[in-house]
Design a protein around this nucleic acid. Structure first.
Length: 720
DNA sequence: CTGGCCAAGCCACGTCCGTT
DNA sequence: AACGGACGTGGCTTGGCCAG
């Protein structure tokens, strides 16, 4: 089944009780209590001092990393010009625009500049020193993908970074959840509506990729990977070699950025072979370089296994945008031409390539090549000949005199590798930093903004929101955290929220052959009346019981429970976390899209035993939830069930749990979920391999206090 | 031992359909 | 006609499982 929050700007909290055999508890994953969106509560742990070194008001200050206001020099610029290389403990700096870049990020840019008495650091400083990447060299050959060209090999022995990048992350989810300019979990080009916002330079380099002028000019093959095999109607089809890449959506978007002069953010990962420093030493997997402009875009023929032997690939030249200081990865001494003065070999970048030496900054316009055949202009890229670089032209990639294709080995035309005229950032591109999340007058801390990641102003690390109560920097040596105060909300605050739906309680696809039985009344306690709707699944696969919580007595009790959950989350006795998934396809760890807490037997699928507390240590709210679910099932269904696990899940706005089954080994045949807070949908569909209709078979709206019981092993066996 | 297949979550995008 | 939400599909990724 899958569950999603029905309303917007709400958070939810869910707890599920499941029954597992005593023998071997393996994970299970259903049953939850959803609670209201707006009321969301946040579990906080006041005992942890996440506000250390950072007051709430400070934390709310916008802190641009790359300041493009020319009247304000960035820290980098100041350093570059020899001003303000103060080495005060960064904790004492006011949190100004300059703080971020002149603080720890660049503190040990030049280790020789650090006064001797700085060796005696305060405790707090020790952490920050830990943040600095150690010096030394790293053998990078093992990281070089096969087929890398010669230039890549020259960078295999790369010095370590001497400081953390202003924005970096250990895994891709952290980048995508924190950095608005790159939200693509898979592709290397992030674009929306044909506008590219971010471009990832990764391990799949191409011949003649370049990293020049200290990274102010970068040449990379365009979006799209090597050969591409497309599947059409179940068959694998090799796409026609001709204009494969120009049809690529990401290439089209990149070309549009080029035409319209839109900047984009460049991101590198640790497999990018041309970056002159090694990111690997301190778990820097991804680092944001900064804003770049596409200054050249052209097509090339590339040899391929595909029929015809050649495919069209697009190449792009990116140039550093002015107004964001100098690139962060070079010591300021280098900018001043003093790079030899400190004699510190470890901080020196590798030898320049021949082409870099030849390249002198130029402000002249690049003279294009005019094609006689098609009349279009192309840049004069390679020494071996000016050629037409329009794939539609019959003279594409052919030398004009001989009509021969360009040779395999090519050398860049000298002038082509010069820096273009300076590229200035347009308005609206002031900062790459994510906007700060601010306190809301209604005390809601579960809106979508609160699900986004955290960019640490101390060490630059981007972190996912992994705990319900606050943000925490994932850098082990940093310890920075940030919390926005939240309120406890009552369930009836969410009553006004409606979810758009064509059904009131449930919906059954006629093709799935399930039978809805008549509404039945039952007795709650001695006087209360409850109602239950039962759906009988076909072929004896089991039952789905929807126990409604529409009597006053039932509502009172679940509202009290809802409050208990929020209080426990706030006082830290119940910690909701997002746990890494065991099975996923993204690089690095991938956290679930909801927060959870497990009690009883371990839930292996998410978190495993780490995510599980024994009953003796379970928060009272969890025990109460378990007791309530068991009692209500007894009253409504006449079944006596002892659940041996309660998984409590908390959802913020738009968070949800994907389709899954609760068929872990050791799980019993009954899994029940209690929803608290805002309404939520729960969907069931046939599992793969079943011959039944695809698509959602049965849906429920679960409102505050509703309990859904999945009764029978067949439910888990055939549905998800 | 190897190669093929599958997984969960997310985004981009196409289509359908209802509303403006 | 234009817009936008709902829904479905495809693609991406990488380690583990399983059949050959």
């Amino acid at each position: 089944m899958s569950r999603s929050n029905g309303s917007s700007s709400v958070g939810q909290l869910t707890a599920h009780g499941r029954w597992k055999s005593r023998a071997k508890p393996l994970g299970s994953r259903d049953a939850r209590i959803d609670h209201d969106p707006n009321t969301q509560t946040i579990a906080g742990s006041p005992s942890t001092d996440w506000l250390t070194n950072m007051s709430a008001s400070q934390a709310l200050q916008p802190v641009p990393l790359w300041n493009n206001d020319p009247s304000k020099k960035t820290a980098v610029e100041q350093l570059n010009h020899g001003a303000s290389v103060k080495q005060e403990p960064f904790e004492e700096h006011p949190l100004t625009d300059d703080y971020c870049t002149s603080g720890p990020l660049f503190k040990s840019m030049d280790m020789d500049d650090v006064p001797a008495d700085q060796g005696k650091v305060k405790d707090a400083d020790v952490d920050m020193n830990d943040l600095l990447v150690g010096q030394g060299m790293v053998k990078g050959t093992e990281r070089s993908p096969k087929g890398r060209d010669e230039e890549a090999k020259t960078t295999t022995d790369r010095p370590l970074l001497t400081r953390y990048p202003p924005m970096w992350a250990e895994n891709r989810q952290e980048v995508c959840e924190t950095f608005d300019w790159f939200r693509s979990y898979q592709g290397g080009v992030y674009f929306t509506k044909e506008i590219v916002k971010g471009y990832l330079l990764g391990g799949f380099g191409a011949k003649r990729d370049k990293f020049l002028h200290d990274g102010r000019l970068i040449i990379s093959h365009g979006g799209g990977k090597a050969e591409s095999v497309h599947s059409e109607k179940g068959r694998s089809v090799m796409k026609e070699a001709g204009n494969q890449q120009s049809d690529d959506k990401s290439v089209r978007a990149l070309l549009k950025n080029f035409r319209e002069g839109r900047p984009l953010a460049l991101v590198i990962d640790d497999k990018y072979p041309l970056f002159p420093f090694s990111l690997a030493s301190k778990n820097v997997t991804y680092a944001v370089l900064g804003f770049y402009m596409i200054v050249h875009a052209w097509a090339e023929y590339e040899n391929a296994k595909a029929e015809g032997g050649r495919i069209v690939k697009y190449k792009f030249a990116f140039q550093w945008c002015e107004g964001q200081g100098a690139p962060w990865w070079f010591p300021p001494t280098r900018e001043k031409g003093l790079d030899s003065s400190n004699g510190d070999i470890d901080t020196k970048p590798p030898e320049k390539s021949e082409e870099v030496d030849l390249a002198v900054e130029s402000t002249s316009d690049f003279v294009p090549f005019h094609c006689n055949a098609c009349g279009e202009k192309s840049p004069y890229v390679y020494k071996e000949g000016p050629v037409c670089l329009m794939p539609s032209c019959p003279m594409f990639w052919r030398v004009q005199k001989t009509s021969e294709y360009l040779p395999e080995e090519l050398t860049y035309h000298k002038e082509f590798l010069l820096l273009h005229k300076p590229c200035y950032l347009p308005l609206g591109y002031e900062t790459l930093r994510p906007p700060p999340v601010t306190e809301r007058p209604d005390g809601i801390t579960t809106s979508e903004a609160f699900t986004r990641g955290f960019h640490c102003t101390k060490c630059g690390r981007m972190s996912c929101r992994s705990e319900w109560s606050h943000w925490k920097c994932n850098n082990p040596g940093c310890g920075n955290s940030y919390r926005v105060p939240s309120k406890i909300h009552r369930a009836n605050e969410f009553c006004f929220q409606q979810i758009s739906s064509k059904f009131i309680y449930d919906w059954i696809d006629s093709k799935c052959k399930a039978i809805r039985k008549p509404l039945r009344n039952f007795t709650i306690g001695t006087t209360g009346i409850g109602q239950v709707l039962t759906i009988e699944l076909p072929r004896n696969r089991g039952f789905l019981h929807h126990i409604l919580s529409n009597s006053i007595k039932a509502k009172e009790e679940v509202s009290q429970l809802f409050k208990e959950y929020q209080e426990a989350a706030n006082d830290g006795s119940l910690v909701f976390r997002r746990w890494p998934m065991r099975m996923h396809k993204c690089r690095g760890s991938l956290l679930t899209n909801y927060f959870s807490h497990n009690a009883g037997v371990p839930y292996n699928y998410v978190g495993g035993s780490e995510n599980t507390v024994p009953w003796a240590k379970a928060p009272a709210a969890v025990l109460h939830a378990r007791e309530l679910i068991q009692r209500r099932i007894r009253e409504a269904l006449g079944k006596e069930i002892q659940f041996n696990e309660v998984l409590s899940a908390a959802y913020m706005e738009r968070q949800k749990m994907a389709f899954h089954t609760d068929d872990e080994k050791g799980l019993g045949s009954v899994v029940a979920g209690l929803s608290l807070g805002s309404p939520a949908f729960m969907h069931f569909r046939m599992r793969k391999g079943q011959n039944d209709e695809k698509g959602i078979a049965i849906s429920f709206i679960l409102r505050h206090g509703d309990i859904l019981v999945m009764d029978g092993a067949g439910v888990q066996k055939y549905y998800e």
